[in-house]
Simulated assay, not measured.
Amino acid sequence: MSYDLTIDEKRVYAERTGADEVLIAAEEGVVVASLSDDRVGEFGLDHRAAARDVAAAGNRRAVATDEDVLVGDYDPTDFGPAVAVGFHDGALLAAGPGGRVARLDDGWTTLGGVETPRAIDGGMVAAESGVHRVDGDGLRNVGLGGVHDVVGRGLPLAATDRGLYRLGNGWMDELDGAFRVVASEAPRSSGSREADSRIHAVGEAGVFAREAVDDWRAVDVPSDTPVDVGYTEAATVAVTETGTLLADAGDGWRARELGVTGVQRLAVQA
């Protein structure tokens, strides 16, 4: 079976099987893979350009590249080089390598600057200079430093050089050590509770899953340490820098080599 499908063909495949689409930002470009439970179906390189980040919200998607922020069918937006993208309150946010953070309205509205931006989630920006929160048409630094990743929806979490933190009455310790990735399942209904959400963190000591406040368990993965984690309704999904896509629907991890390198991020489009 050929893996050289157009994006339209992949969407038909996903609708027919009930599969989700996983978007992977890699050195070679954006890979799109269909995932049904923990089984990887069709996949292929959908857009050729070094991708630094990818985000999805409903039927919307955005890609940060060395040239521009791309949306939809990889249409340019005239942002310029970008290292991080994310959606917040229906709007697209992006960060450039120089630290500029902006929101796409009719055009790009600059919200402020940060030092070495690394990730955007739910209106929060992870940067060397700390966690920055979108506040109206500006940014507000809400603490920490050396931040590599952030969860800005539901229970705010930050992965830093010194540890993993959650935001309550200030930033509180969750795990010690250096962390590079933190991910949380977005609520799928108004009745969802934070305690029921899947939450993972990846650091120098490996992969961890959160059971409750201050209660984490180590997770074994059959590959290199993941560089990002995401969620479908049925499975936890992860990807490694060397292009191994992992999925666990409760019966252990399945792995699929995607044939790309320099993977940065993933996003799930359900």
Rank of each mutant, 00 (worst) to 15 (best):
A25Q: 01
V263H: 00
D4W: 14
E204M: 09
A102M: 02
V131F: 00
N141Q: 09
V151R: 02
E257W: 11
A235C: 10
R162S: 13
V69P: 01
I7P: 02
G98W: 13
P222L: 12
E28F: 07
N141P: 05
G145M: 05
P97M: 06
A212I: 13
Y3N: 15
P156G: 11
R210G: 06
G163M: 13
R100H: 15
V69K: 02
E42V: 14
R217W: 09
A102F: 03
D220N: 09
R217Q: 14
V125Q: 03
G113S: 14
V30Y: 00
V221W: 07
E28I: 04
A201H: 03
D38K: 01
S129W: 12
T261I: 13
H148Y: 11
V181E: 02
R133H: 09
G203H: 02
T77S: 06
I199V: 10
A195M: 10
D8F: 11
T160N: 00
A159T: 08
P187H: 04
E27I: 00
V31D: 02
R39I: 15
R153E: 12
T65D: 00
A186E: 09
V221I: 13
L35Q: 00
G250S: 08
E28P: 01
R254N: 10
D220A: 11
S190T: 14
A267M: 15
D135G: 09
I120L: 06
V227K: 02
R162V: 09
A209F: 14
V69G: 00
A126D: 03
L45A: 08
P156K: 02
F43A: 02
H47F: 13
D224V: 11
S190P: 12
V69R: 00
H88M: 07
